[in-house]
């Protein structure tokens, strides 16, 4: 799997944090504008896959710190749970709930179950893509 390219390896080191930051930006931007959990998750997964290509599987697993299946599971739980709060207000499943409050330094903040769902999707995409990629990469060796 290792491509033994100095350029790729150096670039991978710098690109990983940048791409991860960009993926979070996409995730949060999806609130009102184009973006969202799916595309953000793909970018984050692509960042780690790039790292996997430039280094090797062990270091990719190390940089991920947790098993991708844990990421997948957490994401799925978050996504399903985000459907539930509406029910307690007597509304159907998946009805979005909003909480607005003002915090010092940040100004007005809007939180919603939609955001939880998006974070869930983000984690599911990262988890499933990396599970597949790491399985394939390990089968190659």
């Amino acid at each position: 799997m290792n491509m033994h390219s100095l350029i790729l390896r150096t670039a991978g080191h710098f690109l990983l944090p940048l791409l991860l930051l960009f993926s979070v930006f996409l995730l949060l931007r999806g609130h009102d504008e184009p973006g969202g959990g799916f595309i953000g998750g793909l970018v984050a997964a692509a960042a780690i896959v790039l790292y996997l290509f430039s280094m090797d599987i062990q270091s990719a697993r190390k940089v991920l710190r947790v098993d991708p299946r844990d990421v997948l599971g957490t994401g799925m739980v978050l996504a399903v749970i985000s459907a539930i709060p509406g029910v307690f207000r007597g509304q159907p499943f998946f009805t979005a709930q909003w909480w607005e409050f003002t915090a010092p330094l940040f100004g007005e903040i809007k939180l919603s179950t939609v955001l939880i769902f998006d974070i869930g999707v983000y984690l599911v995409v990262i988890g499933s893509v990396l599970t597949i990629m790491l399985t394939l990469a390990e089968a190659e060796e």
């Binding site: 844990d70 599971g73 799925m76 739980v77 996504a79 399903v80 459907a83 539930i84």
Partner: peptide, 12 residues
């Protein structure tokens, strides 16, 4: 919703 929830929990 229930099987989705239990599925997610058992992945976790």
């Amino acid at each position: 919703v229930l099987p989705l929830l239990f599925g997610a929990l058992s992945v976790m």
